[in-house]
Design a binder for these strands. Sequence first.
DNA 1: ACAAACTACCTATCTCTATAGTTAGTGGCA
DNA 2: TGCCACTAACTATAGAGATAGGTAGTTTGT
Lengths: 197, 197
Amino acid sequence: MSLRFALLALLTSRPMTGYDVSKQFSQSVAHVWHAPDSQIYPELNRMERDGLLESAVVPWGKKGTKKEYAVTEAGVKAFREWMDAPIEIRRQREPAYLKAAYLEWAEPGAARAELKQFRDHWTEHLAMLEATRATLVDRSHPTLARRLEHYDASEWDRIVRYKIFAYDGLIDQARAAITWAERGLLLVDELEGSAAD
Amino acid sequence: MSLRFALLALLTSRPMTGYDVSKQFSQSVAHVWHAPDSQIYPELNRMERDGLLESAVVPWGKKGTKKEYAVTEAGVKAFREWMDAPIEIRRQREPAYLKAAYLEWAEPGAARAELKQFRDHWTEHLAMLEATRATLVDRSHPTLARRLEHYDASEWDRIVRYKIFAYDGLIDQARAAITWAERGLLLVDELEGSAAD
DNA sequence: ACAAACTACCTATCTCTATAGTTAGTGGCA
DNA sequence: TGCCACTAACTATAGAGATAGGTAGTTTGT
């Protein structure tokens, strides 16, 4: 159900085609709620069917057309209602931590490789989050810039700071994951005897 | 797919009935991979069909019977293979952070309520994780105690420390979530004007 | 003139999850 | 003797999500 609201969140910045949505999505909302385009297109259709979006067919080149979606009043209302409703608490589902708890079953080499892979993934992810955070701070983030156009300048700080707050939380998570993986690598060295590799 | 391996992990400690599994599960592996019993029973059946488990029918009372599952050699092999394979990286799916990024749309009261709910959930979760961690440190955790029986005492430290390592990671996550929510509450006060409630 | 890369928009299928039930026997106690 | 909580083991169904495709037009570079 959150996909629907992630899409509404994005579309409140400006009307977009499905293709725009799927491109912009991966650079913003997906940091917090990932979805592939095979989920995005059908969901946009369903949202239109449910009256949350309306679409206009726009010509594209000589023969091509594209469909631009805009949030309706009902869509804004649904989004506000979701924002005011209690959040769903996600259940724990962490394959990395599951494996960590049973690391005595792994080959030491495989244990090290997994922890490194995990650390590297989060290191990369952290860099991306920090880069995105920087574009929020200086307001160069394209979706944010378009969003601020609808508001009075006196509101800008408030809007931007909530987005930075969300990214700060994600950055903390990423840092914690990296620290944890590094502690894990030291632990494997200690328990399995350190091996060069 | 991880559910299968979460179940194998649990069943390597000792053979269990489906009911035992679903009870023990919620006190151990579920901290890292949640699943309701409506997923556990069918998955146990499928694992038996696939040769990872074998079951014995055990009498229970006068007429009742129960089915006790034990991990087969193929099951142990599959578990080891999964342990040595690279981990799947989970995609971000965090409704709380999604909402946080768009908090300018929420009523200030609703924003506060959500952050409090989030903080309280994680505070409770943290207490449970710390309590479980303590039972690992003193080795009074029932599943751990049964597990250690299969190993030589010289191996105990290694096994226990990996489990503590996993819980340390979860505890860090919980603490980070609480700190983040508290920062969020201060931010709402600053941006929306503080309201007593 | 043509290829390659990009824009645009899906579809199909399978698995995984969530939610909400059902059926039946056991053990204790009032 | 009857009731209730617990043990035991599912089932049914809908929706979400992952993976892997497909088709058609456009733009850009050579």
